[in-house]
Write a protein that binds this DNA or RNA. Structure first.
Lengths: 144, 144
DNA sequence: CTATAAATGCAAATGACTGGCAATAAGGAG
DNA sequence: CTCCTTATTGCCAGTCATTTGCATTTATAG
């Protein structure tokens, strides 16, 4: 996701560029390979711009999500992880259980064959998810 | 999952069998192919035994989870779905977006090859998830 | 039968997130 | 540049699923 793309999409949607929104976008771009909780994102934003509020962060995440610019997954039982979508084509991710770093896997296991099997059993499949969890190199080294 | 198995595991863990716990287990067994929210489970339990409390349901779900007897997935942004684990061997599920019915898929796409790719990129994978979402036959028919 | 440790119920707390509303400010029109 | 419309923000109170503290009850080993 490029800054240009983001700005263009926001402009088309008649959204205005406030300093808060700009900070949030900058931080999201700087962390485009990491799943951030709303709280973590807020803290990172406040380092750049103390005038930023929890509600504002949530509302911007909601906006970006509505514009299909966000990827969200549950980090744990009750917290969502947010990041900008990274490519246009369908793919999955590996996620570090410690730092939240994500890397794309250019692979989707959902073959037509699997869909057919599901259909044969009366299920019409609309979507799916697949995530690999583990430890990234940095965090794995820290564990030892 | 059989009742016998459950009772045995609970006994080994020095857990006591109360009427509330028994009701919860019965309802979970009767719905072993359906993802239930805590609230839905509570309501089903109360039909059998009005003397049952939200906290008790949560505490029993937590216990069964700690004993590795539960399977949990997020139903939506802020609600967990719970069901008993169903087999001993590794597999995945199709989940109905409307009624929560789940069916096992005897298939796991995570090949040694994929793990190798991840390793080559510095990730050590510990686990993964895969769920197919869609509509089961009954709910799909109802939609039309 | 009794002691003890597990389990329950209640009410209050938590924590992520949302909504109402008044105040502020972006940015296009003129 | 100024004005006006309307998006956006901040604050605060509210939700909703889930958890915790604590006093009370109850299962079960001995």
């Amino acid at each position: 996701m490029t800054l240009d793309n983001l700005l263009k999409t926001l402009h088309t949607a008649k959204c205005r560029m406030t300093s808060q929104r700009r900070t949030i976008i900058d931080v999201l771009l700087a962390n485009e390979n990491t799943l951030l909780s709303a709280d973590h994102l807020l803290k990172l934003c406040q380092q750049k711009n103390p005038d930023i509020n929890t509600t504002t962060v949530y509302r911007n995440l909601e906006l970006l999500d509505a514009l299909k610019l966000m990827y969200t997954v549950n980090i744990d039982r009750n917290t969502m992880g947010y990041k900008l979508v990274c490519h246009d084509y369908h793919h999955h991710h590996m996620i570090c259980l410690i730092c939240g770093k994500m890397e794309a896997i250019e692979y989707c296991p959902i073959s037509p064959d699997l869909i057919d099997q599901a259909t044969a059993r009366g299920f019409s499949i609309t979507n799916h998810n697949l995530e690999l969890y583990g430890y990234c190199h940095t965090c794995h080294t820290d564990l030892l």
